[in-house]
């Protein structure tokens, strides 16, 4: 099972719709970096609206892929994190300190546009 990555101009859009197991998460990490390399995308939005659980492993993979994308010159914004998921992350002590977030896909794109322009 792989997570589809869509290209829109300079941006990559990902909406995670399935229950993520460890393999899918790792696979996604590879796919995304590959796609950034191929397309030269400068911004990535990962939408987590339909994700109802993020445990420490998935949080780690997400945090890693954001740092890696950054190294490759693509800025990542996480959008649509559910309140329940945010609260469990806080309980777990995971703050994703340097990660950009936005309420939804639209605001995520606006944020990317603003940050990449300056």
């Amino acid at each position: 099972m792989s997570i589809p990555i869509l290209k829109l101009y300079n941006y990559l859009l990902i909406s995670i719709q399935t229950e993520i197991d460890d393999k899918t998460a790792i696979q996604f990490q590879e796919d995304l970096l590959d796609k950034i390399h191929k397309t030269g995308a400068t911004g990535v939005v990962i939408d987590l609206t339909s994700v109802d659980i993020i445990d420490s492993f998935i949080a780690k993979v997400l945090g890693d892929v954001i740092t890696m994308s950054d190294l490759m010159g693509a800025k990542v914004v996480l959008t649509g994190i559910q309140p329940a998921v945010a609260m469990t992350l806080i309980d777990l002590g995971i703050h994703l300190q340097n990660v950009a977030t936005a309420l939804d896909l639209e605001q995520g794109l606006i944020k990317l546009y603003q940050e990449l322009r300056v």
Partner: peptide
Amino acid sequence: IQAAEAVRLIGS
């Protein structure tokens, strides 16, 4: 602080 962190995570 925790509430503020959680608010930031959901994108606000």
